[in-house]
Amino acid sequence: MRRAKLGQNTMRILAVDDDPVFLEQILAGLAALGHHDVVTAQSAEQALGWVEKAKPSFDCFLLDIKMPGTSGIELCARIRKLQLYRRTPVVMVTAMTERVFIDGAFAAGATDYITKPLDRLELKARVGMAARLHEERERLATYARENGLSVGAAEKQVEFDAPFLIPGINRAIEYMALENYLLTLGRKSAYSYAALGIHVTNAARIYTRTDAPTFVAMLSDVALAICDGLKTTQMLLAYAGEGNFVGLASRSISTDLNELEQSINFALTDFKDIYDADKLPLPDVRVGELIRGSVFSLNRPTKILDQAIRAAQPTKRTMSKIRLLAG
């Protein structure tokens, strides 16, 4: 382990890589960006040792994917299981760009991805994003302190339009992580994906009639029903705010979307007694059309997420149903 000098108002970072040359490079790169409080480890096992005894805790992780023994992806999953690090930015680092590794990293809870060899501009952008996530958490912690709440309780005071990580759902990742995933793939590889928007049409009504924890629980119910409906289909799922979920799956996905919508709404009827007791309507879910990117498109790769969300809005869907009936 090497501990660089302490800085102020910067993140405390744990960088893990089995190559000491790379660790020296990343220490220099981070220092050039103003991050001086960096701890390094050369294996997942050593990193977990630091994680257990870190005081203060780490604000960001940079994890090499390919390491002997426990891989960076397994390490990411183990860090994510710790309550303290449930939402800490995790940036994966690797020379390999094969999608199989990227998929695994994001599914294990990574928030972003950077490739070797290091490029200063890329490092600046990725670590800058992690710093923004960290600042968001710090603001939340301050808010919690000032209002006599636990951070967990403060997290539950959600804004209606804010994306957040749905708790307790294996396939769920943060919306920003889903965007980063697509940006990392780039236009060419993103072409092999399809996005699916799923909208809770009465989310605003439920939000105004209940407290934040119940609203979050409602979204968890919907997320569970979505995962059940998707069965074995591999899909990363994120909550984008305003009652909108968006999923990302292989372009060749063959799910029947009408059947999926019915299955989700049917699954939610299992919770009817609970919603009745809370005097709340059951969530009503609409599934949009699959949005596939065009290989010739000059749009940013994340555009398909916006399009998928728009395609799931009731007005659009109603219009298309009317068009279908008319014609």
């Binding site: 000491p20 040359v21 790379f22 020296e24 490079q25 220490l27 220099a28 790169g29 050039a32 060899p117 290091l118 490029d119 200063r120 501009l121």
Partner: peptide
């Protein structure tokens, strides 16, 4: 374009990070 690590706003006389270890290996 990959930038050389010496572009990373290091002091002019500072050793290139990792170079000595790279050479040792």
């Amino acid at each position: 374009m990959q930038r050389h690590i010496s572009d990373w706003e290091l002091p002019p006389d500072a050793p290139v990070p990792g170079l000595a270890r790279f050479r040792e290996l």
